[in-house]
């Protein structure tokens, strides 16, 4: 008797595929009907062309435009007011973009790393901005959309307009510990985000009738807001 362990799980766990600019990854995700997650530190504003490219591929394959087919990473920092957010988070945001990304740009895509089609597309339309983030300050990062920071209302509006709606994205990966941000401040960021920002965003796509097929089935419904119940 020979026993082969078989990895069976019913339902199949959801699969998310990360991408950072290769257009062939769109095909990979769409052909397998998995969630494509664009991972970028440059924010939603810079990701429109790239995400539109993904949705074009989805449409070309005749699939529905379920926003949950997509995920996006966004850096977020919430405080009581916009001014307080700047006072609390500016140096940590600058620390991140000035000191934590010491990778020579050409190492991000060395020869042989991408397939030909993606390489050509990247050379025609570079994913990464040409600007040097070491020369930008907190307000630049906000204005250019690298980071969404401010009061709960500000963060809510920016997330909704620049990320959720502009990119047609259902799954957010929010990066809430940025650069040198200390533990307590990170907890505050998470707390304000969960209590005062996310509830307004959570149902936006479900209200339109979309279901998140790329989320563990047993966790999908019924949804009970775990925050603020006590």
């Amino acid at each position: 008797m020979n026993l082969w362990p078989r990895p069976i799980q019913t339902p199949h766990p959801p699969v998310w595929v990360p991408g950072s600019g290769s257009i062939s990854t769109f095909d990979f995700a769409v052909e397998r009907n998995v969630c494509y997650c664009f991972l970028s530190y440059a924010g939603g504003k810079a990701a429109r062309t790239m995400m539109q490219g993904y949705w074009d591929v989805v449409a070309k394959h005749g699939l529905d435009a379920n926003p949950y087919r997509a995920g996006f990473l966004q850096l977020v920092a919430v405080s009581e007011t916009d001014a307080k957010a700047e006072a609390e988070y500016a140096r940590h945001v600058e620390y991140f973009y000035h000191k934590c990304l010491h990778v020579p740009p050409h190492w991000l895509s060395p020869a042989g790393n991408q397939d030909y089609r993606s390489l050509l597309a990247a050379n025609r339309n570079p994913v990464r901005r040409q600007e040097n983030t070491k020369e930008l300050r907190y307000r630049d990062f906000l204005e250019k959309g690298y980071v969404i920071a401010g009061s709960p209302a500000t963060v809510r509006d920016r997330l909704m307009d620049d990320v959720v709606k502009a990119l047609h994205v259902g799954n957010l990966m929010l990066l809430v510990q940025i650069g040198s941000m200390p533990h307590e401040l990170t907890l505050k960021n998470i707390d304000l985000l969960a209590r005062e920002v996310l509830p307004a965003l959570r149902d936006v796509w479900e209200d339109e009738g979309w279901e998140n097929h790329w989320w563990p089935e047993r966790l999908r419904k019924p949804r009970r807001d775990p925050v603020g119940v006590a």
């Binding site: 895509s109 020869a111 042989g112 790393n113 030909y116 390489l119 050509l120 050379n123």
Partner: peptide, 10 residues
């Protein structure tokens, strides 16, 4: 750029 990078990769 593509030609050069691809040639190196090959």
């Amino acid at each position: 750029r593509t030609r050069l990078s691809w040639a190196m990769g090959c």
